[in-house]
Amino acid sequence: MSEPSKSIHQFKAKLITGKDKNLSDYKDKVLLVVNIASACGFVGQLKELQELREEFKTQGFEVLGFPSNDFGRQEPLEGADISAFCKDNYGVQFPVFDKMMVRGEEANPIFKFLTKTSTPRWNFHKYLINRKGEVVDYFFPFTSPQSSKVKKKIQKLLK
């Protein structure tokens, strides 16, 4: 039996628009993968995530948002409504994927892969992925995307 891949690039997911997206399209990019929810107290981080993306996108950085209703049923919206909420309220331009489960037996395979390092305990858990698609760090929901801790680790990976 072969060893499972250690790269997020092996997966694909459905964008909020319904289009399939191969995560291998993000090869050679540093990623911040975040489970998001529109009714969460941390929802203001959507604006911070977008600002972070703007700051580093020309250097090969991208944020990927994965809506989830796993924590406190804080993602009541579906599809286009999630997209509109993120864009209209927080100016989100980073890719947002279809709502999925991020923990437990029913978790999407992407999150089963990510949770080998840390299981999300709430919305806005962040996984930092290097250019090879490997999880190199994670940040708890209360850690601001604009914190020096997050930015320094991204900058180091972008070098």
Rank of each mutant, 00 (worst) to 15 (best):
I154A: 07
R73T: 14
K159Q: 14
Q93E: 15
K153G: 01
N108R: 13
G60C: 06
G60F: 09
L31A: 08
E75P: 05
D137C: 06
V30E: 02
K149S: 14
M1T: 13
T17A: 01
L114H: 07
K149H: 13
F124P: 02
A84G: 03
F85I: 08
M100S: 08
S68T: 13
G104Y: 07
V63M: 09
D98M: 13
G104F: 08
E51F: 01
E106W: 11
P76Y: 07
V33P: 00
D98P: 00
P145K: 02
F139V: 00
T115Q: 14
N130I: 09
F61G: 10
V135L: 05
I16A: 10
D70M: 06
I82H: 10
N35D: 12
S148E: 15
I36R: 11
S38C: 08
E62L: 12
K151I: 11
S147C: 01
K14S: 14
D70S: 03
S2E: 14
R53Q: 15
S7A: 11
P145W: 05
K126M: 00
T119C: 08
K57R: 14
Q74Y: 06
V34L: 04
Q155T: 15
P120D: 04
K132C: 11
G41V: 03
F71Q: 08
K153R: 14
P76S: 05
G44N: 11
N22C: 13
T115D: 09
A107V: 06
H9I: 01
F85E: 01
G44D: 10
N69K: 10
E55R: 11
G18E: 01
F139H: 03
G72W: 00
K6Y: 08
P4G: 02
M100Y: 04
L77N: 05
V136I: 14
L52V: 12
L23P: 01
A37G: 11
F113C: 04
S148K: 15
F97D: 02
F142A: 12
L32E: 04
E51R: 12
L64H: 06
F97E: 03
S83C: 03
F124Q: 01
S83W: 13
F42W: 13
A37E: 01
L46A: 10
F142Q: 14
R131K: 12
N69T: 07
D81T: 07
G72Q: 09
M101F: 00
D137W: 02
S7D: 00
G44W: 06
L64P: 01
V96H: 03
F113M: 04
I110C: 04
F111W: 13
I154F: 06
L15F: 10
Q74H: 08
E78H: 13
V136W: 07
E55F: 07
Q146C: 03
T17I: 04
S118K: 15
F139I: 01
V43D: 07
K132S: 10
M1K: 00
V34Q: 05
F113W: 02
G60P: 07
N22L: 15
I36L: 10
L49Q: 12
F140V: 13
E75D: 00
